[in-house]
């Protein structure tokens, strides 16, 4: 009887498991060791409820706030881990290996991969696209004295990101919207 019930449950759950969408939320490590070593660390974890709360306090009159409000409209989570160090090589690639492993899972596509010999700054931008809609974005920026990981969950409109860049005093990025490069490709 128990076996029969388990079998029935498995049969019922199988279609649900098959239809389950990939999760764009990364499991970010604790980075406690890096926090101790860092001269400055930023840890931001904003889920949908916190974003909704923040949205109520963003002022529409302020251009920066208005741009932020526009960007967070379709977003249900922003997670940032950023560390700045006083010395070079204060962290190793193994520290972010756990994050990179998650980004090699199905669903994620590398949109941009930059390696700068001049500044030794490496930036990887990944997007998770489901039904031609970006539902997640991940960014890993490794600099000699800084490490930043950003994970944004939600329907990300790259046009909005363009606006965001303009508002925050950063030049607009000419990304080709909806054309994500296959994983592992070079720009």
């Amino acid at each position: 009887m128990r076996i029969c019930r388990s079998l029935m449950l498995a049969v019922l759950l199988l279609p649900a498991l098959a239809c389950a969408e990939p999760n764009p939320q990364l499991v970010l490590p604790d980075f406690a060791a890096l926090s101790k070593k860092a001269a400055q660390s930023t840890t931001i974890s904003l889920d949908s409820s916190m974003l909704a709360l923040a949205g109520r306090f963003l002022e529409a009159d302020d251009p920066q706030d208005a741009a932020a409000q526009e960007v967070i409209k379709g977003i249900s989570g922003i997670y940032v881990r950023s560390f700045a160090f006083d010395t070079d090589s204060a962290y190793s690639q193994s520290d972010i290996e756990a994050v990179r492993r998650q980004l090699s899972a199905p669903g994620w596509s590398r949109l941009v991969e930059t390696r700068s010999r001049k500044t030794h700054a490496d930036v990887d931008i990944y997007v998770m696209i489901v039904n031609k809609q970006a539902i997640g974005l991940a960014l890993i920026a490794s600099e000699p004295r800084a490490l930043t990981i950003v994970n944004i969950i939600g329907s990300i409109d790259l046009e909005k990101l363009h606006k965001l860049e303009g508002q925050f005093g950063v030049p607009k990025l000419d990304l080709e919207t909806g054309k994500a490069a296959p994983r592992g490709s070079q720009p």
Binding site: T42, I44, I78, V80, S82, V112, T114, R115, S116, T119, A121, V123, I125, L139, A141, E143, T148, V150, I152, L161, L164, E165, F168, V170, P171, L173, D174, P187
Partner: peptide, 13 residues
């Protein structure tokens, strides 16, 4: 922070 790092990628590209 996100826009800063996007700018880093932009500069490299």
């Amino acid at each position: 922070v996100t826009s800063q790092k996007l700018d880093l990628a932009y500069q490299a590209v």
